[in-house]
């Protein structure tokens, strides 16, 4: 067993884990944060995307022990005081999901796109940046609309952005 200490959604966590435990397994099975999904388990689909020190990564291809001393944000950590994050609200408003399986990864990816590319995102940029996220229901159309709207809304919610 190896000891791993990290911050998850602002809370300190220390745990002894089998070194082969994947970060996504650790989040879901040890911490019971089941919002982060496992889709393909081969770093293609993006359902497992979380933020590691502020960068979007695929948690199925990171060992929990590699996340030692880092800060993780999952889909559970972005709403503030019962208010949906603006990107979550945009996905609801624009019906950017059908079955919902890819949605946590889509939203974590979308927030990362905004942090790198800013709040005024055109369709081409969003589609290119989403190449690491697969959705088998929507055809992406409403996801793209939701991200464009969510990015705009994030500009008007500076407090929430700072919290993230």
């Amino acid at each position: 067993m190896t000891t791993v200490s990290l911050t998850v959604n602002g809370q300190s966590v220390t745990s002894d884990v089998d070194p082969r435990t994947l970060l996504v397994q650790f989040l879901r099975e040890n911490l019971r944060l089941t919002g982060t999904h496992v889709g393909c388990d081969t770093s293609q689909c993006g359902a497992c995307i979380v933020h590691l020190n502020g960068q979007a990564v695929k948690a199925c291809t990171v060992l929990a022990v590699q996340a030692h001393a880092s800060a993780i944000t999952t889909i559970e950590g972005i709403a503030q005081g019962g208010e949906l994050h603006p990107m979550q609200a945009a996905f609801r408003e624009h019906h950017g999901l059908q079955c919902g399986y890819c949605t946590p990864g889509m939203i974590m990816s979308a927030i990362d796109i905004v942090s790198r590319k800013g709040n005024a995102l055109d369709e081409q940029t969003i589609r290119a940046e989403l190449e690491g996220n697969l959705c088998r229901c929507t055809g992406y159309h409403n996801i793209v609309k939701a991200i464009a709207a969510g990015a705009q809304a994030m500009a008007q919610a500076p407090l929430q952005q700072a919290a993230e």
Partner: peptide
């Protein structure tokens, strides 16, 4: 290379 998330690792 890969996608944005792969490039972060």
């Amino acid at each position: 290379i890969g996608d944005p998330h792969v490039r972060n690792r």
